[in-house]
Design a protein around this nucleic acid. Structure first.
Lengths: 407, 407
DNA sequence: GAGTATATGTTCCATGTTTAGACAAAATCG
DNA sequence: CGATTTTGTCTAAACATGGAACATATACTC
């Protein structure tokens, strides 16, 4: 039961019905390709004539194409299959992280082309833009057979104003109010879109093509790495809020008297479960103390820690188990607040999922209010899926498939 | 950028455009009444002919009526004003609380008719239903000139399954899995809708008729009474979640090592700021200990406590100031998670708003991540506004104005 | 007071969209 | 080969908005 905003509404025009049905058809082709006009008409519950007209429009715009004639199921004329046309266009996804920056090229469906490349992140915007532009141009030259690049999507670990193309605050990069979009767009001559990495991850799952990976209702993506990013999907849309800062569950407290967080407050969830927090716990030092105490401290990663835990090192196991419990406790807050159908979890810690799942689940049940809340589905998204990169790509590829604004 | 759900979409039919524009017109009349067809057409940016047709349809359905001819602004024919027709229909709102149950009658616009009545809440569903049915019948008989009753809306302090008409769990009433809707509907012969009281409060603000009370973007309602209820509005819709339990920020922790909460967990926000928590703090006893320590303890209310604080009693002031700080700290979590345009606060504690606002605001700023987050608008909703009752009414009255489902 | 200008609300036709059904093309089965 | 079935196209009807003309009603001007 949605209220129409009397200050911001969209009246249905003569072409609105067509626009709606066109997008539905496009999405169904995306979800079910290859598909015939007749099947499309059955899925949409409209006459074949309407489906044909919609398909004709999509064909003439080059969004889809007619493939080979398919095999008939029984008797009767064989169907001509329709596909999303992602042959002559590609998208570049960029994932900027504190240590390294990753680049991936995909087609319009988000299918990976070539391999993921990376380079060390420069915290200075000038050199970073230059390096990015150089590498993107090179990658596009290498894959020239793909065709034109539709755009570049960038996931940034911090608060972002997508409309202004600015990074408002990225603590791990020490960025404040930096326009990342315009310099890069000018350098490569391709439109650039930027977004917070947690929201990008949520977008990646929302627009995933593998049908088993798309949640039916609301969903939440929790990305645990150096920091913790969260993206929330409500009614098929990423929750943005007034200033595009919605979803910052990372800084909802577990204990206001807890360890100091990089954000300045105390006891944030992030201060308990981020990779840095887990490592700090292992080394028994304060999270806000950036200086490693030893050579080992300086180089050890969470993956190393998990390896040690697997070999049975008690201290490593204890550190990881603590993180697991706190992870569960924080997920309970998300469940209580949002009641999602599914939670996705990404980040290095998920490589230990077999080890920690029972602990996460029991921590979660400590604080969820209902049995079904405690049973909320949790799915691990492995690093190989590159959720940040796929989300960055979705920034560019998804708008063509989005629902029209109506009423 | 909303994704169309390929498993649950609505194709635009021949009448869809009309349906959309009809609802827009209806909402604009609701928001701007009295209004002429010509003004409506200008607001909608359509031809007067179209507006006339839409108005004709609404007139024939009895949703609106033509009032007196208005005064001309300049020269030219005078407009005929249109109004929402709420003359011959009324709605009953019911607010069930642990101690007392309140009843209010309104017209379709939510305007109060007569006065609010109340009686002591029986925790047994049979007697409660009987008493409710008796009183509702009586009220409707008293206001017979109003016309037929369109429905009864009930706000319940607990988890609710509106589709099944059941209260899943209401701790303060000791209810579990109780069908509240069907017995009452059978007894009075009028449709009954039930909803969680936090969500009802959010609905009340969303559908408020005073334009200054309707937030433009997303909003959150925090109701602080015996318990704490929260309702979230996203994109003009109350956030429900998978099991209609979204919005339970009351049980997001401030400190997992904090005081035990009635929900079983520890350190929930509710355990710091509910009226019971504030009183417990004043009397220096454990929140979970239901037994009052003294006669004064058994009878003192938060309003009394506020009165004492205003007279300068240090202990009372300290208890309230603590609650204020914790209120702010928890609001910060809501702001970080949802980033709303506005937060509404209701409940007895708001009568001390002048006293506590600076403390709430500073507690809030302790944990918000950005300056604009810390500056999020907070509005107090006084008890006289009866947000729970207005929300209960909206359950019945609002669906007629809701946006059609499309795409 | 008559004429002019202007605003409201209705009416008619053009355009565009879904709905319904007929029809040709193509493939299978007996 | 003919009957049957399926796909895809095409046409007319029903219904929506878009645009303009028209009747009605009021105010202003001469």
């Amino acid at each position: 039961m949605r209220k129409i905003n009397p200050h911001d509404f969209k009246v249905a025009r003569r072409g609105t019905s067509r626009e709606i049905n066109r997008q539905i058809a496009l999405n169904l082709i995306r979800a079910h390709q290859p598909i015939s006009r007749a099947d499309l008409a059955r899925l949409m519950n409209v006459r074949r004539g309407v489906a044909s007209l919609l398909v004709g429009e999509l064909l003439s715009e080059g969004l889809i194409f007619e493939g080979a004639v398919g095999e008939a199921v029984g008797r009767g004329r064989r169907p001509t299959f329709l596909f999303i046309d992602s042959r002559q266009r590609c998208v570049v996804g960029v994932d900027i992280r504190a240590s390294r920056t990753f680049i991936m090229v995909t087609d319009l469906m988000g299918h990976q082309l070539g391999s993921v490349t990376s380079f060390q992140t420069s915290r200075e915007i000038g050199p970073l833009t230059q390096e990015l532009a150089r590498r993107i141009k090179q990658v596009l030259a290498d894959y020239k057979e793909i065709g034109a690049c539709e755009g570049i999507g960038i996931a940034v670990p911090g608060m972002v104003d997508p409309a202004a193309g600015k990074v408002l605050h990225a603590p791990t990069l020490y960025w404040r109010d930096i326009n990342l979009r315009d310099p890069l767009a000018a350098a490569v001559g391709i439109p650039v879109h930027i977004e917070n990495s947690g929201k990008a991850c949520a977008l990646a799952q929302l627009w995933a093509t593998r049908s088993d990976m798309v949640a039916s209702g609301n969903s939440v993506f929790v990305s645990v790495s150096d920091g913790v990013g969260v993206g929330i999907v409500v009614n098929g849309e990423v929750l943005r809020g007034r200033h595009n800062t919605a979803g910052e569950f990372a800084h909802v407290p577990l204990s206001i008297d807890g360890p100091r967080c990089t954000c300045g407050a105390t006891g944030c969830w992030e201060a308990y479960i981020s990779n840095l927090a887990t490592l700090s716990r292992y080394f028994g030092r304060d999270l806000t103390d950036p200086k490693p105490q030893s050579a080992e401290d300086a180089s050890l990663t969470v993956e190393d820690l998990i390896a040690r835990a697997r070999t049975g090192e008690a201290k490593a196991l204890a550190a990881i188990n603590s993180t697991a419990r706190y992870l569960g406790l924080g997920l309970a807050s998300i469940i209580n607040a949002v009641d999602p159908s599914r939670i996705y979890i990404g980040g290095e810690i998920t490589t230990a999922w077999g080890l920690i799942e029972p602990i996460v689940r029991s921590g979660l049940r400590e604080r969820t209010l209902t049995d079904f809340g405690g049973a909320t589905e949790i799915r691990v998204v492995p690093a190989e899926d590159h959720p940040r990169l796929r989300g960055a790509v979705a920034l560019v590829a998804a708008p063509a498939f989005a629902a029209p604004m109506v009423a």
